[in-house]
Design a protein around this nucleic acid. Structure first.
Lengths: 229, 229, 229, 229
DNA sequence: AATGAATGAGACTTCATTCAT
DNA sequence: CATGAATGAAGTCTCATTCAT
């Protein structure tokens, strides 16, 4: 799972401003971020002490701080890890193109994929974001908002093209986000359902829900239900 | 305050042990719970100290403890406040009856109403539940699960009656919950949209999404799907 | 020594803004301040840890903080202790009146008395004031400056009355302050010299040094022009 | 760098052990000492971390340690820098000769010159000497005492020669030192007053203050010394 | 000559809770 | 009913120094 991560993405990480670090250093930090995400997800950010993190990472306090800078910077690094992946997914969707409903479905697919692959990071992301303060909070909100706008855009296009009903794009985007994001509470790797198992019915439901006309959900390409007279 | 209140079941506060308290005492506790919910929502449960709570409530530490028993008991009381209201809403839906889609719509209406009326409590409820431990955590999970089951039931009925497609009831219930619960992040009293403004389009979207047949959104019309000639 | 201290003086102390405390509490704080002054004087402010303070005061960390608020607030309390005494001395001088030279002598007497009675506090005061920050630093500088102005005033009066030569009042005040303050390094209670033993010759030296009168500055002319005939 | 420099005696830095270093090395160390003195003066010795020093000097930790040996050794080097200069001044005074009052004036001139030329070093010297420990503290106290003795000597000579009154030489030396040393708090290069501007009036004041002769000391009301004709 | 990763002890401070008054 | 003094464990973070590279 971890192999494929594009480490080089402009990830902020815990490092102080832009300073370049050795690959070995970056790899160590990445490992710390991942391990810490698990601990935060299990115990909660505030309930997790530095001692817990040190123990989980097998590091002394000094060494840990050498990498993370601060506990909050570590939290921010986890957030960035998630946002990087989510944004990468959105970029793939844009690169692929397709009808609004197809793109919406793909967007869900990508999002749930991230949630399933990084259950701990995402839990932390969706649960502990209020712990971010100052500049970090601002940055986080901006990136989050940016993603929401992308969902909204797809909806707007569908409405303009007549593929979707005339729904409130912002409200509908929030509905879509809630439906998908909320899966972090129960969607686990190795669970009964895979990300794909969930993404498909979610896309069906959602696209049908906003489809224009007396219509059969196009996204799933499911055979039109006969229209028997 | 009447005996019959369903809320009375999960009476809040330090006195889980059936000990009866004077109405004055209960009122004071309720005020403390409400005020504390606000502070928890603003600063987070762990980040809020007993000193903060004392200040916000205008009480000394001893007095506060006299009422709340412990910080976690206070948190549990907030959870119960929310669950009591949510369950009361579900009970009203059952008492009202109607078609599955009508009941699903009404369920959403009631849920969003709670979220809009108790934004602080709900925020705490959805963010800080992992801070509950032991018996309190178990009890919380049970009540939460109970509510989920009621949503699931409505879906099952709709599927059995043919009003809904043959969706996975559990998965669909989770989608519904996510869509509605997630509104706690942006649905605020006095905001652009009221609870009702949101509940209606959400119900439209969702019922269309799971409606059986070549269907025109029946949800809002509530008109019997039938029209079989 | 400690008995005579006018506890009630508008001393800032470590307490949060103006809150009234019980006499027992105030007495305990005063004891902590005095004990801590000794430790700071011995080891230096920064080199003294909270553990050292706890041990010296026979208190746990929590209890210590209950009284002091913060390490820097404790430092400020020590400063205020000194400034209160010094200002009280200056007030007594003003109340007593007399010729500028008499008042200057009395001012030195009072100042050295404080230095001798509170050697630890004064050491801390003169050595660790740069550790004060923000509002506390500002307040400290203001009070210090105020005292300097009072010395300067006496000098100005003496110059105007013709009792003193036409010296630079500010520069001369600084000379006076240096001469007196610097005694904190070696003037100890129980030492060879008492405060009075030092104050008298200092006053002699200084007043002669700035006295007007039929005197030729021997220093610059080098060798009194004798004028013997 | 000539061999004869008196400063070379107390050569600074990590190499107390007579190990000779290359001139380039020595120059680098001197630069580090000067830069660090500034940082210590600004932030305080204890409040300044090795990281601060590294940043200020543009060096890595390892490199810095290569030169300084330890933080305390660096502090000692700053002390030595000051003492070297002060002693050199005292030596020049002795080499010049002259009457006791002339020599006292010149001593003040030299001392204030050092204070004005090395404001940072002197600040550190007068504020942080308690941070020196063990052998270094002993050495520092010895040198300091040695300087005091030289001031005392001049006073004794003046008393013996009848040029000065019969003052307590030790006490008067301490007064002189206090008056001059204390200028480190406000005498800055580029300020209103130069070292010379201060030295002159200080010498006037002090020499008048201890001058023997037919002086009316108004302050003490001491009976005019005979004025025998 | 120079680097910065690594370290554990200890820095200051806040915590939830108890209990004598 | 109500208070706030008392507590020690635990909180987050920085420290001066070493050493392999």
């Amino acid at each position: 799972m971890a192999d494929a991560r594009p480490e080089a993405t402009g990830r902020a990480g815990a490092a102080r401003a832009g300073r370049r670090r050795s690959p070995r250093w970056e790899a160590r930090l990445a490992a710390i971020v991942d391990t810490s995400a698990r601990v935060f997800a299990e115990r909660g950010y505030h309930a997790t002490g530095l001692n817990d993190l040190c123990e989980a990472n097998g590091l002394g306090k000094g060494t840990l701080y050498h990498y993370i800078g601060s506990k909050e910077a570590l939290l921010a690094a986890i957030h960035d890890r998630v946002m990087d992946e989510v944004m990468a997914g959105a970029n793939r969707v844009d690169a692929t193109g397709g009808s609004p409903s197809a793109r919406l479905a793909m967007l869900g697919d990508e999002l749930l994929d991230v949630i399933a692959r990084y259950p701990d990071h995402v839990w932390v992301f969706l649960h502990e974001f209020p712990a971010l303060t100052g500049e970090r909070a601002k940055r986080f909100r901006a990136r989050r908002r940016e993603y929401e706008k992308r969902v909204e855009s797809v909806l707007r296009e569908g409405i303009e093209s007549g593929e979707f009903r005339d729904v409130d794009p912002r409200l509908t985007a929030l509905a879509w986000l809630g439906m998908h994001n909320y899966t972090y509470l129960w969607l686990k790797p190795g669970g009964r359902l895979s990300a794909r198992d969930v993404a498909k019915p979610f896309a069906d439901l959602f696209v049908r829900g906003i489809a224009a006309g007396p219509v059969t959900a196009p996204s799933s390409r499911r055979r039109p239900p006969a229209r028997r007279r």
